[in-house]
């Protein structure tokens, strides 16, 4: 049983990550329910997704209940930090150094190095899978991304994933 919040700006690919996590959990036979933002807010506004793995009916996480906050935009973290449990873990897209219970990865920079800023979501999710207790493993993520029938998308996603994993391995915090 674990609850997560993913947050960022509209257009950063949060719904894609929500689907990835939900599909992986589903293929593992876990019960999962999520909620996401659509409509006006996705035009660059603040958005978040809620992910609840366990025997839940409601798709919304209550404040103080999330084990993880995955933030694609550090400026959006204060909008969502209240969802974390007191010992919850923040995984943030940021070049700043790690802190206790805060894991940071410059996913935007790594994605830019790969030639596509839009890959920052996959970089950060791959980084998050390396953090202890995260509900999906890097192997599960890899097998999901490797199953994409579109060759170019598959190749780029796997490269983004490798970049995130490498960043986690070289970070003393993970």
């Amino acid at each position: 049983m674990v609850e997560l919040i993913l947050c960022g700006r509209g257009g950063q690919g949060i719904v894609f990550l929500t689907k990835l996590i939900g599909e992986i959990a589903t293929s593992k036979g876990l019960r999962v329910i999520t909620s996401e933002t659509h409509g006006m807010a996705v035009r660059g506004g603040s958005i978040n997704s809620h992910v609840r793995i366990g025997p839940f009916y409601s798709p919304l996480v209550r404040p103080g209940q999330a084990g993880f906050l995955v933030s694609l935009e550090s400026a959006e973290t204060p909008n969502n930090a209240h969802y974390l449990t007191p010992d919850g873990i923040l995984v943030e897209n940021s070049p700043l150094p790690a802190e206790p219970r805060v894991f940071r990865c410059d996913a935007a920079g790594l994605a830019r190095d790969l030639g596509r800023t839009q890959l920052e979501n996959v970089v950060l999710l791959a980084f998050a899978t390396m953090v202890g207790g995260f509900p999906i493993s890097v192997e599960e993520l890899r097998s999901r991304l490797a199953g994409d029938p579109r060759e170019q998308v598959r190749t780029m996603n796997l490269r983004a994933m490798d970049a995130g994993v490498k960043a986690a391995k070289s970070s003393a915090a993970c």
């Binding site: 700006r9 509209g10 257009g11 006006m40 807010a41 996705v42 035009r43 660059g44 506004g45 603040s46 404040p63 103080g64 400026a75 959006e76 204060p78 909008n79 969502n80 930090a81 209240h82």
Partner: peptide, 14 residues
């Protein structure tokens, strides 16, 4: 309960 500490970002034309 804690609440968000900042205001949500407003949407804009792309």
């Amino acid at each position: 309960r804690d609440a968000p500490t900042i205001k949500a970002r407003r949407p804009s034309l792309c």
